[in-house]
Structures are given as structure tokens and as C-alpha cells.
Design a protein around this nucleic acid. Structure first.
Lengths: 210, 210
DNA sequence: ACCTGAACACCGTTCAAGT
DNA sequence: ACCTGAACACCGTTCAAGT
């Protein structure tokens, strides 16, 4: 009953940190080859464990996918937290940079983006972890818009409706730019940014006009 | 070499209209059980043909999914065409009713909606049919907004940006209401409609203000 | 606890063959 | 042309067993 600090994090019996390895390798393979091309067995093979070792850490494949999606949401939250510090008292910039980040993610890691927002994991019927993380991303938008209302940057209309309009536009735009629905889409990051700014302006006008 | 009008549409050798049966049964099973739960073999079994009869009509499973998605886009187009006739010279109503229809679809047939917009078929790398249909839905929005600009219902800003903002908000909102991302979402159709109207107002303000 | 190998009931896809 | 059955190389998941 030593309080043996499990410092031998390298490898115990066989792996040591299989839980996280599965998530990371799963994400890597998801990004490389797409959702329909990855299998639990191949992830295990790539890590070098037996094909059912994963079942010690996840009840089934769906739960591993949920854990990958959760990580995606946690990353978004971490970035938004940085924005909150960097652009305190500037809700407009927070909103725009948060949008840019999501759009970049949708284009850099489209398969992760689609896993999170494309209905492949049901946010409705999923584990508590994923539920919490996906709700948190909505809270961060409510927070920004609420601050904007207090500072009179935005008008005083219904906060929830403003939040929904904002998130809808951002998520929808991210989806469209990454899905191939747009034939002629700006390619360079600078073009994309300028383009997003124009689209965003339409929303901001709606959020501001009294 | 009679011009035998294939009126014996019931069953020829074995089925007669396997192509469409596959699409319809595939959609039915997609709606009932979700993308990850359907298989080509089971669709064939449900129709009553051998497990590889589908390969006479589709190169692989992905192509059947594309055909189902195409049908979804064709339906949207047909509905938008009706709106164009019913609400001619009222681009605002056309836009809103088109949005309502997509939102209803996302909630009534979430699996079809996700197939079309959730990255499970790549609109970027797909057959010409699906490419054409998905592009057409963008054209219909451009048309409505262009008409609105001519009638001075909307302002004269960049048409493409207005289109993107509009589609982004509509698709994003549809996605959010159907994905379970919103905890407390209006349940009855009337509540949903009122809610959408408020969100839509923010966009319309942005499209109108000069 | 954590991992393994064998086993089960499925897949998608291909191929040679039947009408 | 359109369909079938057998075959191949995979899956996800479960279970009894090993350290």
C-alpha cells in the first residue's frame, strides 16, 4: 500500500498509457484517412497492442470516437480562453478570432471537425464528458456576447438568439468552406481571412443595429 | 427490336427497378438506424436480392450513399422551386421559408441531413451528379438574394458574401438544432418557427442596413 | 488490472458462373 | 444485361485464459 507515484509512466506491463495513446493515434489516423477508413483493430495494431486491448479503456468504438471529439472540443475551449485574456474588453475581436480559429480547424482537420459537428457522434446521446465539453463551447459564446451587450458594443436583443445566430453563422461557414460546397473558395490564409471578415460584417451589423 | 415500352415495371428477371429501390430502401434504413448501422448487404437483403446485386448499379457503397445524398439535394431544389413560384417578388419570405424547410428536414431526417452536410460524402471528390445538385442549392440562394438586391429589399453589398452569410446561418442553425448541441430547444413546430424567426431577423438586419 | 489468442457473426468487394 | 453463390480479407465484440 505504498503511495507509489506511478512515475514509471513509460511502460508498465505493456504500454502504460494506452488510454491516451488510443485517442492520439485515433485522431492521427482519423485526420489521415477519414472516419470510414479507421478501425479499432488497426489503431491497436499501429500502437502495437492486441486487437482487443482497447476494450479495457473504451466500452466500444463509439466511445473512443467520443473521446476524440471531446479532445477537439477541449482544444477549442483552450483557444477561446486564450482569446479571452488576449482581447479582454474587445468582444468583437474575440468573436472574430474564435470564428477564424474554427474555420482554420475545419480546413486543417476536416475529419475531426466533421466528427465533432457532423452527427457521427450524437451530442444528444453520448457520455457526460462529451456532453459537458460541447455545452461549454456554447457557454463561451454566451459569455462574449453578454459582455458585448454590457459594453454596448452589441444591442440589447435576446441574448440566446444572438448566440444562436453567431454560432450558426460561424459553424455553418466553417462547414461550407471545408466541405467542398464552395467551388471557388479563397485558398491562401490571407484570402480566407479577408473573406471571412466580409461575411462576419453582415452578422455584426445585425448584432449592433438598434 | 420492338420499341417495347418497359411497362412491365413490376419485375423483370428479378426486380426491374433495383437502382431506385436501393436508393429508397437505403434512405429508409439510413433514417431508421443511422449511417454507421446500415450495410449494402442488409439493404440488399431487405429488398430481397443477392448481396452483390447492388454492384450492377453502384460501383461501391460510397456511390449508393452519394446517390441518396443527391436525392436529398434534389428534394431541396424542388421545394425551393415551389417557394419561388408561391412567393415571387418576396425574397425575404423565400429565404425564411427555405430556411424553415431545411431546419425541419434536419430535425425530421437528421441522418440524411448529416449525410448531405456532415462530410460523410465528400462534395469535393464525388460523382458529377452530386456535384451538380449540391452546387444548384447555392445557385438558388444567389438567385433569391440577387432578386432582393434588385428590388432594394437588401442592400447592394457583395452578393457572394451575402449568399455565404445566409447559407452559413441557415445550415449552421439547422445543424445545431438537430445535433443535440442545444440543451433547451423549442420542441413544437410553432415554437421552432418563432425561434427561427428571431434568429433570422439578425441576419436580415445585416442584409438590409445600408 | 491489464493484456492475449481464439472464436463468432458480420462486413465490402471480387470472381466465375448461371438465366 | 442482370442476378447468384462461393471466396477473401477484413471488421467489432466477446470470452476464457495468461502475467
Amino acid at each position: 500500500m505504498h503511495t507509489q507515484t506511478h512515475q514509471a509512466r513509460t511502460k508498465t506491463y505493456h504500454h502504460g498509457d494506452l488510454h491516451n495513446s488510443l485517442i492520439l493515434k485515433g485522431l492521427e489516423m482519423l485526420n489521415d484517412r477519414g472516419l470510414s477508413a479507421i478501425s479499432l483493430r488497426e489503431i491497436a495494431r499501429n500502437i502495437g497492442v492486441g486487437h482487443n486491448a482497447p476494450y479495457r479503456h473504451f466500452k466500444n468504438k463509439q466511445q473512443l470516437l467520443e473521446a476524440i471529439a471531446s479532445m477537439g472540443f477541449r482544444r477549442l475551449k483552450a483557444y477561446n480562453l486564450r482569446l479571452e485574456l488576449e482581447y479582454a474588453n474587445d468582444p468583437e475581436t474575440q468573436l472574430f478570432e474564435s470564428a477564424m480559429h474554427l474555420i482554420n480547424m475545419a480546413n486543417d482537420e476536416p475529419n475531426l471537425f466533421n466528427l465533432m459537428f457532423g452527427g457521427n457522434v450524437s451530442l444528444f446521446d453520448c457520455g457526460d464528458e462529451l456532453k459537458k465539453e460541447s455545452q461549454a463551447s456554447m457557454q463561451s459564446f454566451i459569455k462574449i456576447l453578454s459582455q458585448g451587450q454590457k459594453q454596448d458594443v452589441f444591442n440589447q436583443d435576446n441574448l440566446i438568439c444572438q448566440t444562436l445566430a453567431t454560432m450558426s453563422l460561424i459553424y455553418g461557414f466553417a462547414m461550407m468552406t471545408s466541405s467542398g460546397m464552395l467551388q471557388e473558395i479563397p485558398k491562401t490564409p490571407d484570402q480566407m481571412r479577408g473573406f471571412t471578415l466580409q461575411v462576419f460584417d453582415i452578422l455584426l451589423t445585425g448584432l449592433k443595429k438598434t
